[in-house]
């Protein structure tokens, strides 16, 4: 995608390369003017915070500011790795992300396959429209529903449990229930709108394949098994790798609303810990160090996912 200007520059050596660049800039001056707000935004708000990461290696004090706070090297990282925090957070984050990936991944695919089998247009449309309603609701509303439904005193789930003669369960107060509750609410929230992607993949399958299969006497099961599923497999693989790469990016906004000191032991993930230590306890440096570590793990996982995607599908995720 080399421009004519820079190609001319390459041929004529350095000084005229600069001249060519200047000429190019002059030609694009109006576009560059339009680009200034965007450039400023990215430099200040996306690269600017990287400077603030320095405090992970300092003892940050609000009064001294970022630059004048004393350097402490890897002190915070040493504290993090030698204490209990690291093992707990690493396990919780990875486990919650992994279990959520494994359990919620099949649902949008199943929903798309089921919707695809519906012949009544209006029925298919209605179900689909309803199914992605939760994607429009805020995380606060969703958590409010979760809390209400699971309430030990008036929640419908416990009413049903009691109707069968069992004791009510305090779901949000018990460690064993935190992960299932989180994952089921994630499935409920995302199933509908993620199925859009698979439905589009199904719509992209060549209809003549189905025609040919029907002529050959295939029934609907055969067609789903041998045409639809192989037809969307590529999309499924890409989505799976993509989700693996971002697995540890837990929906911490949801965790913050659902966890409590009673469930910290299983529910506390990197981001919620960073929020509590940094913003609630004002332990900025330590929180920044944990945040930096999380960012590095996330980056490595994303790069690994991309590598796998390239190996398998021949194309990367970007």
């Amino acid at each position: 995608m080399e421009s004519a200007a820079s190609r001319a520059g390459n041929a004529a050596g350095k000084p005229s390369r600069l001249a060519a660049a200047l000429k190019h800039m002059k030609r694009d001056r109006q576009l560059l003017m339009l680009f200034i707000p965007c450039l400023a935004f990215y430099l200040i708000f996306r690269y600017g915070p990287l400077y603030g990461l320095l405090i992970a290696f300092k003892d940050y004090s609000v009064f001294q500011g970022i630059w004048d706070s004393p350097w402490v090297g890897l002190k915070h990282f040493e504290k993090f790795f030698s204490g209990n925090d690291f093992a707990l957070l690493f396990r919780n984050t990875l486990l919650l992300g992994f279990l959520n990936l494994i359990f919620s991944f099949p649902f949008p695919i199943l929903l798309a396959l089921m919707l695809n089998e519906v012949r009544l247009k209006w029925f298919k449309k209605s179900v689909q429209t309803l199914s992605y309603l939760p994607a429009f609701l805020s995380v606060v509303i969703i958590c409010s529903m979760v809390i209400d439904f699971l309430s030990p005193t008036h929640g419908i789930v416990n009413k049903i449990i009691q109707a069968f003669g069992f004791e009510p369960i305090y779901f949000l107060g018990e460690k064993a229930w935190f992960r299932p509750v989180y994952i089921i609410s994630e499935i409920w929230t995302n199933m509908g709108y993620e199925s859009i992607i698979y439905l589009a993949a199904i719509a992209g399958i060549d209809p003549t394949l189905y025609e040919a299969a029907r002529v050959d006497g295939a029934n609907r099961y055969h067609m789903m098994r041998h045409i639809t599923i192989p037809g969307i497999l590529g999309t499924v693989v890409v989505m799976f790798i993509l989700k693996t790469g971002s697995m540890i990016r837990i929906g911490y906004e949801k965790v913050l609303l659902l966890y409590s000191p009673m469930t910290y032991e299983v529910a506390d993930v990197f981001s919620t810990f960073v929020y509590r230590k940094g913003l609630l306890e004002a332990n900025f440096s330590y929180a920044a160090a944990v945040g930096l570590f999380e960012a590095l793990v996330a980056l490595v996982m994303l790069l690994a996912a991309n590598l796998v995607s390239k190996r398998i599908g021949g194309r990367g995720l970007w």
């Binding site: 990215y42 200040i44 708000f45 996306r46 690269y47 600017g48 915070p49 990287l50 400077y51 603030g52 990461l53 405090i55 970022i66 981001s271 960073v274 929020y275 940094g278 913003l279 900025f284 929180a287 920044a288 945040g291 930096l292 999380e294 960012a295 996330a298 980056l299 994303l302 790069l303 970007w318």
Partner: peptide, 19 residues
């Protein structure tokens, strides 16, 4: 490149807050 890179670099809550 500058723009796409930011999708991979997420400095986290604290540096954003300080900024």
């Amino acid at each position: 490149l500058m723009i796409v890179l930011t999708m991979f670099l997420n400095p986290g809550i604290i540096p954003n807050y300080l900024l």
